[in-house]
Nucleic acid binder design. Structure first.
Lengths: 143, 143
DNA sequence: GTGGCTGCAAATCATTTGCATATAC
DNA sequence: GTATATGCAAATGATTTGCAGCCAC
């Protein structure tokens, strides 16, 4: 892992009032590097060979802690499992029902946020789109 | 159950190519009457006293079948369970983290749908907002 | 008549919990 | 030194599956 990535991770954790542990750093680094909206199992499996003592409980604990500190978004676009995403400026997600990929959708939706915030206090906004992605469309002619 | 509600249910099922069964009718009727975004368990518990033979498996089967026929929307706004909603013209949902209620949000978001449809084929759009509802805000001063 | 629907019991599997040990600060 | 984090094994709980009998059409 590059030194600057470690430093960045340490700072990110400290800035959010979290203790710095190797497990937290490596999970944060995974999210930052791949940005692939993984579930807990994918994170665990990707990291366990280089971090043999890592437990799945810790993966869950860590992601939950980071979510509470608004460092990580929890996506429920999949009906069967949670997926995690390093938090960044509001964007949305598209899930392909064919290949299962979750793609970032860069759409700002200022209307929605503003209107509803007048009535309730809105802390999280999730835009989930589901269908067939352009790649699968060309492959399989499902247009 | 009112006669016209039954008739409406029968028509709805037939129009969607589904066989008409008492279980399907009563579940449909529940969704139509309460529109409270229930989970499978709530539906089952609400109906079992008047429909003693109803099984939870059938509740799940029925909701899944209706979802496939685009009669019912599956909401994953709650992280721990699916919630169901009779399908109607596109609207969105707000979940109060305090009282747990899921409220309908009547916002049209034409931008989003149009833009993304140029790239992928979009079959479902879900807008999930989370925070504290106005009622809980006044009660507890969490503004 | 038959293909699809129902309901029971058992299985699955993501996530959570209890608790003893280890570690960040 | 102490509060918190980690990791193991066991528990939980929503959803699914296998299968036998039933019913809508």
């Amino acid at each position: 892992m590059a030194d600057d990535a470690i430093e960045r991770g340490v700072k990110l954790l400290r800035d959010h009032g979290l203790k710095v542990t190797p497990q937290r750093l490596v999970i944060l680094r995974y999210l930052e590097k791949y940005r692939n909206h993984p579930n807990a199992d994918e994170i665990y499996n990707a990291l366990k060979s280089r971090n043999p003592s890592l437990s799945k409980t810790t993966v869950y604990n860590t992601l939950e802690t980071m979510h509470k500190q608004r460092l990580v978004d929890v996506l429920t676009i999949s009906e069967s499992e949670r997926r995690y995403d390093l938090r960044r400026e509001s964007h949305h997600h598209f899930m392909c029902q064919e290949c299962g990929r979750i793609l970032d959708i860069e759409i700002a939706c200022p209307n929605c946020h503003r209107i509803i915030n007048g009535e309730h206090r809105v802390d999280e906004v999730h835009g989930y789109f589901k269908g067939i992605c352009s790649e699968c469309l060309t492959k399989e002619d499902k247009l």
